[in-house]
């Protein structure tokens, strides 16, 4: 009897999965630094107007190297590259988050739908396979070129070509879940599909979704930078890719390293930070990788 009550107390004191994950995450310094970096970049994006004036017009000091007046130097029209990188963070983040949100919604719908509704699975699986086999970059270039450059176009184009990977990962995670006994029990009790999906399936795949959000967002930022570098960015807003594109087309690339270095660095930091955060979260969430540390 006393043994049972001890066990019950132990269960009650057992931390929730979220707090266990958080505890494990906190013990991963690389993950913490990366998360800090992401938060910093988000802050820069939100507070851009407070950090630097919007780069417009032209300046007197053309292609000047980094100095106290221009931390990141100036471009071929004498505009401050620091300000461009700061304001570029906004567009790059907006496109990254926007495209990733859209891709996640589509990918989760298709992935969970395929896993749950068996009759749809074959068709959806085929569709995902076809989408995955398409040459993504040339198609993105084609669509972006035809639709005309704007932030909305970029978000849509990148999302349209990013969701299949999310769908595949989510589907593989959801497949074993839908066969579990508590899902069957819900069916037996007459629960509607919507309820089962929302209460049982989605929560079970949510860790995968969380990782996908971060990874897809960083990939979207890369895609945006790539398209903007090819001249398909929005000419009315600054993005990291646009700064690189300006450096390339003005011919400053070979003579003024700072025009390409700082925006590239920003892209690199964001992508590395996002990847590290996703890895650290995945490790912290997974009991098998977490085991050593929590013991």
């Amino acid at each position: 009897m006393s043994g049972l009550s001890e066990e019950l107390t132990a269960v009650a004191a057992e931390p929730t999965p979220a707090s266990r994950t958080w505890r494990a995450f906190r013990h991963n310094p690389l993950g913490l630094v990366a998360a800090g970096l992401l938060v910093l970049l988000l802050l820069v994006a939100v507070a851009a107007p407070l950090i630097a004036d919007y780069p417009r017009g032209y300046g007197d000091d053309v292609l000047a190297g980094p100095s106290a007046a221009h931390w990141f130097g100036t471009d071929h029209l004498g505009r401050d590259i620091f300000a461009q990188v700061v304001w570029g963070t906004r567009t790059s983040m907006a496109v990254g988050l926007g495209a990733s949100a859209l891709a996640i919604v589509l990918g989760v719908a298709v992935g969970v739908g395929g896993a749950y509704f068996k009759r749809l699975d074959g068709l959806l699986g085929l569709f995902v396979d076809v989408m995955l086999s398409l040459p993504v970059l040339p198609l993105m270039i084609l669509v972006a070129a035809l639709a005309g450059p704007s932030v909305t176009t970029l978000v849509l184009v990148i999302a349209v070509f990013s969701w299949p990977e999310v769908a595949r990962v989510v589907r593989s995670q959801a497949l074993p879940i839908v066969t579990l006994s508590y899902v069957d029990a819900a069916h037996v009790m007459g629960a509607p599909n919507r309820w089962v999906l929302l209460r049982h399936v989605l929560p079970a795949v949510s860790p995968v979704i969380a990782v996908s959000v971060v990874v897809t967002a960083s990939r979207a930022v890369l895609s945006e930078a790539g398209l903007a570098f090819l001249g398909l960015g929005d000419p009315s807003s600054w993005s990291w890719g646009t700064i690189l594109y300006n450096a390339q087309r003005s011919g400053a690339l070979s003579s003024s390293w700072w025009t390409a270095f700082f925006p590239s660095l920003a892209v690199l930091l964001l992508v590395v930070a996002a990847t590290l955060v996703a890895l650290a979260y995945n490790d912290a969430r997974n009991p098998r990788t977490r085991q050593d540390r929590s013991r």
Partner: peptide, 11 residues
């Protein structure tokens, strides 16, 4: 400058 530029991915 050339050396630094060469270090960049684009170069």
């Amino acid at each position: 400058r050339r050396r630094v530029a060469l270090g960049a991915a684009v170069a």
